[in-house]
Design a protein around this nucleic acid. Structure first.
Lengths: 194, 194
DNA sequence: GTCTATAACAGGATAGAC
DNA sequence: GTCTATCCTGTTATAGAC
């Protein structure tokens, strides 16, 4: 049961974010959201048209937060590879998985254009952001011999797949190994300093 | 509605495999399985104790098939990197995602030790298999300067994450890019031929 | 082995009272 | 705005007939 001195609509959105992350769209019922938010049936349907509308608000917010969080590391100062490493190694709730990536497995989310939109845009944006950063590194002579768009996709895939491995193993170690392996491969393309 | 001249139990397992892949455990009802298999309610509960028992049979089979399929490429003849490339580039139902990896997002699967077991074992096995192969390549002088266990985790993560990116984008292109990017990085560690 | 009936409960929402 | 009542359907079985 959640409440933080905020109104019902806000509590409903935050509760939906938590439950969507934990159990997915198909596995989350309006009743469970109401219970978690400490909000009654009537109140929920007063503020939102239904489960889908509430999920849309929750997903849009989660997607926006993910982009902002990524930009914090990727848009920092310093060498390109250091920024990418900071992004890859920043603290994460590894065993909970990616709150956006997991929606990709939810058939009812992918079937609904409004729900799917933020998911698609998040990954499109992230790949482009990393691709631009890598291109910047190549242009500056910091990195050599790699294709920015393909490498960007590889980096995002390692993160998303790292979550899968960690959850399968029940341990964050697999995630860390995947990231370590990637960074070792990337470092080989760093131009000798000078 | 599925049927292939086989008995009800067999049709039920195959239908469960399809639906689990498509909609996950939470999103798959006994009724949907029965309809897909063309098998009645009573028949299903005669052959299986319930949804979980049926899912267990389906998941175990899917996991076994995945391991066998991976071994087909990874255990072939030829240079290590070529075998890994063959594995990464073999034909896949990219937009459907990984039938084992997707279960990782299913709370009810991860909460049940019997259902989770095959998922965990599959990824443990796959990482070990790739790690051993990479170690073989290092020992043979085909590959240099990479850590087998970490690199193995990276490779599996790229595949799993590649599925996520492809589903998010609604296109296989993202998967292909992630794999291309990975292979480019790995190739830099191939010893000059000789 | 398979069928139909029944059941207890959850999912997702509407209606109208307060 | 929020509450309670109500509704119809789906979920996940069990029971017993055939």
């Amino acid at each position: 049961m959640y409440s933080g001195g905020v109104d019902a609509a806000e509590r409903l959105i935050e509760s939906t974010r938590v439950l969507l992350w934990e159990r997915g769209y198909v596995g989350t019922s309006p009743k469970a959201i109401q219970a978690h938010a400490g909000v009654g049936q009537g109140s929920m349907y007063h503020h939102f048209a239904g489960k889908a509308a509430l999920a849309h608000a929750a997903i849009a917010r989660t997607a926006a937060e993910l982009r902002a969080a990524a930009d914090a590391q990727l848009g920092a100062d310093g060498p390109v590879l250091a920024r990418i490493e900071a992004y890859l190694r920043r603290e994460r709730d590894v065993l909970r998985g990616c709150p956006v990536g997991r929606l990709t497995q939810d058939p009812d989310v992918m079937a609904d254009a409004a729900l799917r939109g933020p998911v698609e845009q998040t990954f499109t944006w992230l790949r482009a952001r990393l691709g631009a950063l890598l291109a910047e590194g190549v242009a500056a002579g910091e990195l050599t011999g790699l294709d920015p768009p393909a490498t960007a996709a590889t980096i995002v895939a390692v993160l998303q797949g790292g979550y899968v491995l960690a959850r399968a193993a029940g341990s964050t170690e697999a995630f860390t190994q995947a990231v370590d392996g990637l960074l070792a491969l990337l470092t080989a393309h760093a131009a000798p300093r000078g």
